[in-house]
Amino acid sequence: MTALLEVKDLRVSFFIPAGEVQAVRGISFTLEKGESLAIVGESGCGKSVTVQSIMRLLQSPPAKIAGGSILFQGKDLLKLSEREMEKVRGNEIGMIFQDPMTSLNPTMKIGKQIAEGVRMHRKVSTEDAKRRALEMENLVGLPHPERRYDQYPHEFSGGMRQRTMIAMSLACEPKLVIADEPTTALDVTIQAQILELMKDIQKRLDTAIILITHDLGIVADLCHRVVVMYAGKIIESGSIEDIFYNPQHPYTWGLLKSVPSIHSQEKRRLVPIPGQPPDLIKPPAGCAFMPRCKYAMKVCVEHDPADFQINNGHKAACWLLHPAAAAIKEAAELEARA
């Protein structure tokens, strides 16, 4: 069986006056049908650039896709013409953006905005498009769909706008939905509503999801697999169980230990990751995490670590996993998990 989406050695750079920012530096991952994948990492690690490349939304210049391929159902999205790409966007791949305030058209009625995508991609009458839009409003739990159809975005709360975005992204029954920080702008109780909705919809429609977030709690709740990015590379990937219960990369350890848990009984000091991510205009020759890594070795300075396979589906790029570093790794792991 071929994967729904296969990203191979993707490289994306931005050309700015100060030089070439290598935002994504050769990443590969696959996504199966109906699977939900989280991409986590800090601002600037390249997670948004990755999904915007999949949707071909990056403006060029300054952005340039420097290499790699993105196979969606077997066809390379990077080779499609703009015309062909329009048939993919919103139709085969839907997208939910972070900020529902700015991603809706303020001068257009909500119902029309949902119906617009349907009319563009399907040969349907105005009435049928409206019927579909009302159906979608119902699906995402907008109360009084008929009345909501004729309202404008400013009459909606943040949560309702995000429901509208979800309705728009799903109206054409895409096989894949990309959600870029879909709940970051929302309050926790509204976030809970949206997460329940996304879980429910995924179960019912069997849509594959790529979720970008920095909240590990959301990942644990919503996703099957996780890709951890750092400085434009994937440093670890695996199932949520692998990443939460058997993390292998020191950066993943750091991410997990720097957030407090509301379930912990005793109070412990948080363990921050010292320093900050490197400048991607001059990315380091070795491991990009080396300057912040407590366990860095000589090899980390000069050589970028290769991927080490931990088990089927769980990979990490760290020299500690090399057999020669076994003793150091054991000590580091003991300490990191204490």
């Binding site: 926790v188 109780t189 976030q191 809970a192 509503q193 997460l195 329940e196 909240d215 590990l216 709690g217 959301i218 990942v219 644990a220 709740d221 949520i240 169980e241 939460f244 219960y245 997990l256 957030v259 848990s261 509301i262 379930h263």
Partner: peptide
């Protein structure tokens, strides 16, 4: 409503919506 960074707890956890 707070998402828990632990898949096992998250699976069993019932949210009050």
């Amino acid at each position: 409503a707070i998402p828990t960074p632990d898949p096992k707890i998250a699976k069993e956890h019932k949210r009050i919506i």
